[in-house]
Design a protein around this nucleic acid. Sequence first.
DNA 1: ATGGTAGTTCAACTA
Length: 256
Amino acid sequence: MFRIATWNVNSLRVRLTHVLDWLATNQPDVLALQETKMTDDLFPVQSFEQLGYQAIYSGQKTYNGVALLSKLPLQSVATSFPGYADPQKRVLCATVKKIAVLNLYIPNGSEVGSEKYQYKLDWLSQLQAYARQLLQTHTHCILLGDFNIAPTDEDVHDPVEWQGKVLCSEQERASFFNLIDAGLKDCYHLFPRQDNRFSWWDYRAAGFRRNRGLRIDHILADTALATHCTSCRIDVAPRKLEQPSDHAPVLAEFDI
DNA sequence: ATGGTAGTTCAACTA
């Protein structure tokens, strides 16, 4: 059995006890974190070691930052797409059990047509190339993280309100399905959909209380590995705690 | 038509 999860924690400093509690309860083999918002010298390595997790991380001050926590040995780490120099720390790749695990914090994009949106599209085209490379060079691949893309209207609380907006625009969605077409499955879709189950809710305007959410955090597995997936669920429990992240963790299980 | 909150950092930015 292999259990892997993703969680945008929106500051690991603030969310450390939430993450430690969640690890202790759910016992994933691997947890991918996004938006750690801390430099590597401040990463709380020992807190995770005490729970039996090795940590690798690529962080920066104030923004972004990704990490992988693992009970199993991690190998061949990469912290960027080859040939794409990005000062923003959004990528962390390692192999676990001969699976290439790619932890992603895809840019938000701010607003359709903005400079940040163009950066997102450029970044996504870099991801396309790297994902294809990984799929060719590794028997198994898992891409997971905060994709900042709601793939279809089913993933949006109010598709009319969100139509054409960032996270839902045609170009972003096309890029997501282009990635799927490279040979990946959205593990969430391998099981009956939990109605109106989202992974992110805006802190503003009581987004969570009103379930005004989007499903933008994903776990994708290569088609062969996907046949071994036995569950994939969004865990909203941590979103109900005091001082929660605006994202909920997503957890998938494989019988390998 | 554009606010609402949260985190980092301490005025303004990102989400």
